[in-house]
């Protein structure tokens, strides 16, 4: 009898925890939707203009959405190849004795708070960019992209390396017995097998990069306009940086506040989409 009660109690506790956790994203989404209602109804298509000037009743958020897109694409285009090669190096070439040290270093890097990355960006990265490209300020979309790449690299390398080392050694032995050398093993065997997992890791990194606020805020330049021709080398603005800087300046039910929430909601859409795609990804056979 007592064990039956315990089991029921356990079921309730687990069920309650699950309910709380599962309802969080739904509640967040609903709150964002309600708060942004005013923006969508009163500003409407005006949201998709490139001019942000609240004093003149212009609430165009396109510059921020564009900035977020550029910065994330830049970060991924740098980080994905680097992470892939590093992970392959770690799992296939680097001796096992070093692997533990390197993985621990990666964990440390992944745990550094983002504000530290931001400060390093302001003090080291931006002045360096000013020198190398001879521009007036290093606080640019490019700096944001570089910094984001640096931030998502440790996590990506670590996860990708896990994927590669989980592929059984028998596969590699079979490949070499068929006459494949190391690089052929990698390109014709390892990479195709880990494609779906690798894709999931890239999506995870993309979500993390989209949501990064502190580091980007300090190095992006925060200029609410569409960048000029030399796209990444000019100052810009991202959704998260705008929210971080300006959300507290607007009172709760004002139109500007509502537009900011609408911006956050639009940013959330890719993350939600990727969540669905992730769930439909296949496991390693």
């Amino acid at each position: 009898m007592p064990s039956c009660r315990k089991e029921l109690g356990l079921k309730y506790v687990l069920g309650l925890s699950f309910f709380v956790v599962a309802s969080m994203p739904i509640i967040i989404f609903l709150v964002l939707l309600i708060q942004s209602k005013r923006a969508f109804f009163e500003v409407g298509w005006g949201l998709f203009s490139t001019t942000w000037f609240p004093a003149g009743q212009e609430y165009g958020i396109l510059a921020m959405l564009y900035g977020s897109l550029v910065v994330v694409l830049l970060a991924l285009s740098i980080a994905v190849p680097l992470a892939l090669f590093s992970a392959l190096a770690l799992s296939e070439f680097i001796p096992k004795s070093c692997r533990l040290v390197i993985k621990s270093l990666l964990e440390i890097l992944a745990g550094i708070p983002s504000i530290i990355y931001g400060l390093l960006g302001v003090v080291i990265l931006c002045p360096w960019l000013e020198q190398v490209f001879d521009i007036s300020t290093g606080r640019t979309l490019f700096a944001g992209g570089l910094l984001l790449a640096l931030m998502i690299l440790p996590m990506m390398i670590s996860l990708l390396e896990d994927v590669f080392s989980q592929i059984p050694n028998e596969y590699r032995d079979n490949a070499s017995s068929l006459g494949l050398n190391k690089s052929q093993t990698i390109t014709s065997l390892l990479i195709p097998i880990s494609k779906s997992h690798g894709f999931n890791i890239v999506l995870l990194a993309m979500s993390k990069a989209l949501g990064e606020t502190m580091a980007v805020m300090l190095v992006i330049g925060c200029v609410d306009q569409f960048p000029n021709f030399w796209l990444p080398l000019s100052a810009g603005q991202t959704v998260t940086s705008k929210l971080g800087r300006d959300l507290g300046n607007y009172s709760f039910y004002s139109i500007e506040f509502s537009v900011m929430i609408a911006m956050a909601l639009i940013l959330l859409i890719p993350t939600i989409l990727f969540g669905f795609i992730l769930r439909n990804g296949r496991d390693i056979k």
Binding site: F53, T137, C222, R245
Partner: peptide, 24 residues
Amino acid sequence: DARAQGAGLVLGHNNEVQTAIAQS
């Protein structure tokens, strides 16, 4: 509330402005 179309950087705290001017 004038717009500054020529702005190259938008900062916040007085501290940030001081740093940026000194760095440039």
